[in-house]
Amino acid sequence: MQIYLPIAELSLNVFGLLGLGVIVGFLSGLFGIGGGFLLTPLLIFIGVPHAVAVSTHANQLIAASASGALAHWRRNAVDFRMGLVMLVGGFVGSTLGVWLFKELSRMGQVELVISLSYVVVLGLVGLLMLSESGISMLRQRRHAPPKPRAGRHPYWVRVLPFRMRFYRSRIYISALVPFVVGMFVGVLVAIMGVGGGFIMVPAMIYILGMPTAVVTGTSLFQIVVITANVTFLQALTTQTVDVVLALILMIGGVLGAQVGARAGVNLKGEQVRGLLALLLLAVAGKLLYDLVVTPADLFSISRGGA
């Protein structure tokens, strides 16, 4: 069954879109990520204009992450104090990102920058997580005790000013660190059309030293607010948010997210991180391949405003 999308200005199959939503929602619930690094390229691939894919995905992410965040909140797995500090940075970052996106589109380089950021960010994060989860799985097999929690922040993190106590995460750290992490993620939301969970989750674990139990919930909470901000900004400035497309993706997404959140409970932290790492590396590899291989047509066209 075909449905005409009023903002994207084309017809797509409803069931295909629902299926996409379910798959991405499942990953979202399982890993505490938005799944945008999969959904945005897929939407562009099936013909949705670039700007519409990015903006609409931000809108869809609100639903998927809100449903996931609520599920984690009931289990008391959200550190709101940490989330709020990161949000301040997130607002600064997304404003900067919207401006960058506009400039890069004008120069015709936005797609290249997006692909390159995907390859670099996903590749690095994937490799880091894969090696870490591999090491900790090996250590468990040998019945070695896990690393002690105290004093695990790197030296440069410990000497920063404005230290704050985050009770839920039981850490004491400079507020500048979550602020910068939040700002970086805000830029990614605006430019790459992703929630940024795939970078926020490892940053929370490795840089902030938060316990894995609260990482997913806090990450989802922060994504809800940032994506709402991006949705509003895009609706206001570019009119590229397609509510019909978003709604279809949401229905699939919320179903998948619930199933994913349940599946995640039965998995160990390092297993989740290992699986996520493999997924990130697969996407990074595919995008790198597309950049290196000679395209079928070296020319491309785009409708340009006056």
Binding site: Q60, I62, A63, V224, A235, V243, A246, I251, V254, Q258
Partner: peptide, 24 residues
Amino acid sequence: AHREAAAYGAIAIAIALAAGWAAS
């Protein structure tokens, strides 16, 4: 979406939040 961009954005957010809450 073009005439009342701000209201459209707000409604898009509200729909998404409602969908997320309902599912949960």
